[in-house]
């Protein structure tokens, strides 16, 4: 797996924000990929808002599903 850099989209204005998954099209949301899922998790281990992570709606839904699956199996914690 190549390393992908997820930019914090907050610097850019709302119109110029790009989804991290749409820009690297080889990426897919997988519940086993804990490394990338951790980026979209809060300090309290909650799923980050789309406003802060800059992910598009389709990928946000897939992300939420992936994180919930990882939590069920014990790869990610529910709370801090």
């Amino acid at each position: 797996m190549a390393k992908y850099v997820f930019s914090t989209n907050q610097k850019h204005p709302l119109g110029k924000r790009r989804c991290a998954f749409c820009t690297n099209q080889t990426m897919e949301v997988d519940y086993k990929d804990v490394k990338t899922l951790k980026i979209f998790i809060n300090g309290f281990k909650k799923i980050k808002n789309r406003y802060y992570s800059g992910v598009c709606l389709q990928h946000q839904k897939k992300l939420a599903r992936g994180i919930k699956r990882a939590r069920h199996v014990g790869l990610l914690p529910f709370t801090n």
């Binding site: 797996m1 199996v73 014990g74």
Partner: peptide, 21 residues
Amino acid sequence: IRHLLISIENDYKYSKFDEEI
């Protein structure tokens, strides 16, 4: 202890994810 059953698409390719951190 736990199990997870998911349906996958036919063109799914399994890939490993290492925790190097």
